[in-house]
Design a protein around this nucleic acid. Structure first.
Length: 344
DNA sequence: CGCTATGATTCAGG
DNA sequence: CCTGAATCATAGCG
């Protein structure tokens, strides 16, 4: 009923407009005698309404007749236009989708965390960035980050596969709907614009689902990150060999226990730790040694012997390697003291 | 559980 | 930036 009246008013309102489309010399004439076309349309509508009372075969025949009616394309266009106008006026305004700030935030974060964006580089870059952002010196603690990166890669993989699934489902559904609408556009007024709009609606729906996915991914990354940051604070003792190497260097350079950058790198490589960790170790060692030299005396002697023995083994002249009595601590007191260790 | 050792972090100073 | 110093937080031991 409502449609009918709408069609009627639309048609009368669009009389002038549709006239060009009809392209029928007759229509001009008919237009002049206003009653005539309305009568035609009225008949058609009457017939349409009556279709339900008819048998299937009759209806089919009638439908066919209607489809072949010379006015059909014109009417169809008019209906499409009316629909276009009403639909547009109803919700055309709010259809603009400005890029959702929420989804943009999520996108940015995912990109920054290396979940979206380029494959491997993004991940490690993000991990490094995370480490850097967390403060302190860790610039290359690859071992510490491997766990984090593995987990991040896992999240990333899940995210991408889910995203792909959604995208596939979305395009499948879109295609389906588009085909359906195209199919139906043969029997009811559906303009291409309407199909477009429908597609846009579908995309919006799916993107809202995607947003949820992004949100949960972000949450997962945040959790992982906080766990990772906590884990960074968790102390793992270096293995015995690493400590040995570090101590050896420390006590054999007791007069100036400040390894150069190259030396740090060398030590780091030998110990399987990072340069930052080497720096930390030496920092801690210096301060703790200084605080309580007595406590470290034994250790100092031990490593003094060790290095002495090593030296003896390396150089064939082992003649002086037999005085294990505090050679290094003695050295540190006798030898030229660096200003920083004058209090020793 | 308490204690110490130890790696990491923070902060100030140069 | 690097370092010393203080501090945090856990590992590991008895």
């Amino acid at each position: 009923m409502d449609d009918q009246t709408r069609m009627m008013t639309g048609l009368t309102g669009l009389g002038g407009l549709a006239q060009g489309d009809v392209g029928d010399p007759d229509s001009v004439r008919k237009q002049q005698s206003l009653g005539q076309p309305q009568q035609d349309i009225g008949d058609i509508l009457q017939q349409i309404m009556a279709i339900t009372d008819e048998s299937l075969d009759e209806a089919q025949a009638r439908k066919h007749a209607l489809n072949c009616h010379r006015m059909k394309p014109a009417l169809f266009n008019v209906l499409c236009e009316i629909k276009e106008k009403t639909v547009l006026s109803i919700r055309g305004v709010q259809e603009e989708d400005p890029p959702d700030p929420q989804i943009m935030r999520l996108d940015n974060m995912l990109l920054a965390e290396g979940v979206s964006g380029p494959e491997k580089g993004g991940g490690s870059a993000a991990a490094a960035a995370a480490a850097a952002a967390a403060g302190g010196s860790p610039t290359d603690s690859s071992i510490e980050h491997s766990d984090y990166r593995a987990k991040l890669a896992q999240i990333r993989q899940i995210y991408h596969s889910e995203l792909e699934k959604y995208e596939q489902a979305c395009s499948e559904f879109t295609n389906h709907v588009m085909n359906l609408l195209r199919e139906q556009s043969r029997t009811r007024p559906i303009s291409p614009k309407e199909i477009e709009r429908m597609v846009a609606i579908i995309h919006r729906k799916f993107s809202s689902i995607q947003m949820q996915l992004k949100q949960s991914t972000c949450e997962a990354v945040m959790i992982l990150r906080s766990r990772f940051l906590d884990a960074r604070r968790k102390r793992r003792n270096f293995n015995k060999q690493a400590t040995e190497v570090l101590n050896e260097y420390f006590y054999s350079h007791l007069s100036n226990p400040y390894p150069s950058e190259e030396a740090k790198e060398e030590l780091a490589k030998k110990c399987g730790i990072t340069v930052s960790q080497v720096s930390n170790w030496f920092g801690n060692k210096r301060i703790r040694y200084k605080k309580n030299i007595g406590k470290f005396q034994e250790e100092a002697n031990l490593y003094a012997v060790k290095t002495a023995v090593d030296a003896a083994n390396v150089s064939a002249q082992a003649s002086q390697a037999n005085s294990p009595a505090t050679p290094n601590s003695g050295f540190s007191r006798i030898g030229p003291l660096p200003c920083k260790y004058q209090y020793l």
